[in-house]
């Protein structure tokens, strides 16, 4: 099977790899680039465990072919926080017990990151609607919603402080 030369910007770094056009983005990230933060849950674009940020959009990387993302800018959970690892969202998920088994968490946080970029002051209803592409089997979502609302106010407070 002929392979293609895939060039991407992943978590701020230019990367290149050989892969088949049919390979799914989630497999490129996990198997070829060793970014195992995004997970595979349902494989039919329902669960969102594989969510990554692509060119400023939250996408389900199990439903995107490698060939389609040639030249794209991808951010995974591994690229969301600074070198210390724990950004505002990560800390807020921890503080509000927004995770249990942790399997959905990378997708959740990656999606929440984009949601807050687009809507920095969401209501609880907007968070629930905006996070509806990500399934969690453990938490019942209540603490995830709480964590995201809290992160929003933290991020807004630090923005105000910076001004």
């Amino acid at each position: 099977m002929s392979k293609m030369h895939l060039k991407l910007k992943v978590n701020g770094k230019s990367v290149e790899t050989l892969c088949e056009p049919r390979e799914l983005l989630i497999h490129v990230l996990r198997e070829r680039l060793n970014l195992t933060g995004p997970h595979i849950g349902c494989e039919t674009s329902h669960c969102g465990a594989c969510t990554v940020d692509m060119n400023g959009m939250s996408v389900k990387s199990c439903t995107v072919f490698a060939a389609q993302v040639q030249g794209a800018e991808i951010t995974t959970i591994e690229g969301l926080a600074g070198p210390d690892g724990m950004g505002v969202l990560q800390t807020s998920f921890r503080e509000h017990h927004g995770l249990q088994c942790g399997y959905c968490t990378p997708g959740m946080i990656t999606r929440a990151h984009r949601l807050l970029q687009e809507n920095p002051n969401p209501t609880e209803e907007e968070v629930r609607f905006g996070m509806a592409g990500n399934l969690c089997r453990c938490t019942g979502y209540q603490n995830i919603v709480k964590a995201i609302l809290h992160a929003a106010s933290e991020l807004n407070a630090s923005k105000e402080a910076a001004q």
Binding site: H39, I77, Q90, T91, I109
Partner: peptide
């Protein structure tokens, strides 16, 4: 007490079998 597991899970550094 806040969970000690969460630092790795929130950073995508869990270690599941498919990893």
């Amino acid at each position: 007490r806040k969970r000690v597991e969460d630092a790795r899970f929130t950073q995508g550094k869990g270690n599941y079998v498919d990893d």
